[in-house]
Structure formats: C-alpha cells, structure tokens
Simulated scan of single mutants.
Amino acid sequence: TGKPKGVVTTHANIAAQVTSLVTAWEWRADDWILLVLPLHHVHGIINVLTCALWAGARCEMLPKFDAERVWARIADGDLTLFMAVPTIYGKLITAWEAAALERRRAWSAGCAPPGMRLMVSGSAALPVQRLERWREITGHVLLERYGMTEIGMALANPLHGERRPGFVGTPLPGVEVRLVDEAGRPVPAGTPGEIEVRGETVFLEYWRRPDATGAAFRDGWFRTGDVAVSEHGAYRMLGRSSVDIIKTGGYKVSALEVEEVLRTHPAIAECAVVGVDDPEWGERICAAVERRGEAELTLAELQAWAKERLAPYKIPRALRSVPALPRNALGKVTKPEVAKLFTG
C-alpha cells in the first residue's frame, strides 16, 4: 500500500501464472464463475477472468458488488466456482444473517457441492472467525492462497485435502518458494523469514525503475517483503515486514497474530494493529477498532482482557475506536492510514 510502481509482466509470465492455477484448481470448460472483483487487480483479471478464458469456462460479470444480488446468483445453483476477498465474504455473511430463514436456506443450498466445487479467498489475510462462520453457513472451507502483482499466485491450500485456518498452504505448480533471514540465508522450519519466489510466474521489471528492480531481486529470487513461517509442511503468514512486523522492546511481533486475538473480544467487530515510533520501546503496539454495536471499550479494559490471551509485550498500548477502518478498492486495510490515527 505504498507508492504504486508499474509492474511489467510478459505474456510468458501471464501464461505461467494462469496454467499454474488451472492445473492446481482443476479448471474445466464446464466451470461457471461469478466475477465480483475489480479488473485492475491480479485477483480479478488473472485468477478469475483469464483462468476462465484459458479453460473455456464461463465468467459472468456483475456491474458492481451487491451482497443480495450475489447471493441470489449463488442460489440459482449453476455456479461452480467463487473467488473473493475477505471483506466481500464479511458482507455476504452480514447479508445472510439479516435475511429471513427461507432465504438463508436457499442461499446456503446454492453453495452445496458438487455444484459449487470451490470457494477461494485472497488479497488480504482471512480472519479465522470469518472462515469458520462461512463454513457454518455454506459447508465450504475457504481455500486461502497467497500472491501479489509481481508474482501472480505463489502459495495455496490444497484443492483436495486439509485446509488449515490461518495458513496459505504450499507452493503452486511451477513456483519455487523459500524463507530467508535478513542476510538472505534460508531459515529452518519453525523460524520466521521473508518469502522469496522464483520461477516463470515472476515479473520482468518495474517500469522505468531499474533501482527498484535491482533492490527487489537477490540471486535470482524475488524478495516479496512478506514474512511467514513454515509449520508442519505449510506456510503461515505473519505479515508485511514494513507494516505488520512490529519491533517493540527487542521483540518482533506479528500484527496479524494480535489482530486474530483481538477479533475474539465481544466488543470488537474488526480491528487493525500497527506499530508507531516510540522513544522507549522502538515501536509501540496500537490498535484501531470498529466496535460491535453500541459496545463500549476502553484501553484499560482491553489491556486487562488481553493479559489473559497475549504475551505482555504483544498487548496494545494505544486504542482508537473508528466508525470504519481505512481500506483500498479491494477492501484491504491501509495500514499507513491507520498509523496516522496515532500520530496526528
């Protein structure tokens, strides 16, 4: 979410990205997918539209997202695939919970396999609570994956097999992934490291930015700037090194891990955790929250609650309640804007 850079992607890159997903997710000519994502983003234009075209499948486009209209199309029972971002799944859950019992049953029935064979979430971390609620409503465990504009998709949970909440799976076909320390040395399983990616899916260069291109590669590997850990053969995201890894009091804290815990508080509907410069701690952990209903929440109350669930150094030291967290066009929280709530 920093200043945009032009990503030069070749036809060969796109072909590699698409064939990797068509293979991994077993796209077929008789698949039918509803596009609810913007086409200026790789999630919509590559993962949905171009994969559908490559497979000879049907891609149906809505002029804009409307939760009830999307549910109505799902209820028709002819869709086989659905891909969205966590924010959209959240809006669909809210609409389902507000609907009458008969509509709920019809909407849920439209998700039933084998008709609807796969539902995917990506472009931002999927809260575990949202994954569990979606499973309760539809019977589907959302397939989480990890990627970015520069590389297409790199990691994904399996089409067949166990999908673990909070994990983004293993490398997709044709993609090499490794985790490295700050010196570029591979780290062992269980140790956090930066994700580096290599393969035909990786972009050519940043448009007219040779300096940025040079800094983005190390020995042929693309440096994503994202941090993960490999546990029991699968990758778990810890966040973006620039905004989600908070260095406080000599510790490195994953903002995503703190957010997962805070979302279980009964007064918190949604939250974002950031690190803000602090002369004593290096960075102090700050939490911006959307409150649930009319619930009240003070910093002291949150800290007392968090002491039972988080290590002392992971507990937020500042709290702001906001009507809505700042988000980009895909619904992803813009952390630099959140940080301004604590520095302005």
Rank of each mutant, 00 (worst) to 15 (best):
D211S: 13
H232Y: 04
G233F: 11
L179I: 03
A324D: 08
S20N: 06
L256H: 03
R198N: 15
A311G: 01
G174Q: 04
V261L: 03
W96Y: 13
E97G: 12
A183W: 06
P171E: 15
T298N: 01
E337F: 08
S20M: 06
A99H: 01
T10S: 13
A300E: 14
A228W: 05
V128T: 09
R292G: 01
V273C: 05
I14N: 01
D181P: 06
C271R: 14
P38T: 05
T87A: 09
E182F: 01
G110Q: 14
H41T: 01
W221T: 07
V36M: 14
I33N: 11
R292E: 12
L341P: 11
R209E: 13
A267E: 08
V42H: 09
V261T: 11
G77I: 12
T23G: 08
V229K: 08
G166M: 00
L62F: 15
R209M: 13
L118N: 07
G344P: 02
G44V: 09
R103L: 10
I315P: 00
T170Y: 05
L172M: 09
A67G: 14
E176D: 15
V70T: 15
L155S: 02
H265C: 06
T149G: 10
A318E: 12
P312M: 04
W54P: 10
G199A: 08
R208V: 13
A125E: 03
I315A: 05
G122P: 01
T201A: 09
R185Q: 10
G161W: 12
G56V: 12
L53T: 03
E301R: 09
E260L: 04
E26C: 13
R28I: 07
A55D: 06
G190T: 00
A124N: 00
R263D: 04
V177F: 12
E260R: 08
F222A: 07
G282K: 01
R105I: 08
A100F: 00
H265K: 07
K64D: 05
V243K: 11
R185W: 07
V276E: 03
R223M: 10
G331K: 00
I315F: 00
G147Q: 04
P38A: 07
E296S: 10
P188G: 03
L302I: 11
R223S: 09
V141D: 04
V18L: 11
L62G: 13
T191A: 04
V180K: 14
F217Q: 11
A255K: 03
E182N: 04
G139M: 05
L299F: 08
P312E: 04
L325R: 06
I195T: 06
A156G: 05
N328F: 00
R163Q: 06
L142W: 02
G199L: 03
K64N: 10
Q17S: 04
V289R: 07
K91N: 05
D76F: 15
H160K: 07
E194S: 06
L256P: 01
G344R: 12
E97H: 12
V141W: 04
A156H: 02
R198S: 15
I46R: 09
L79C: 15
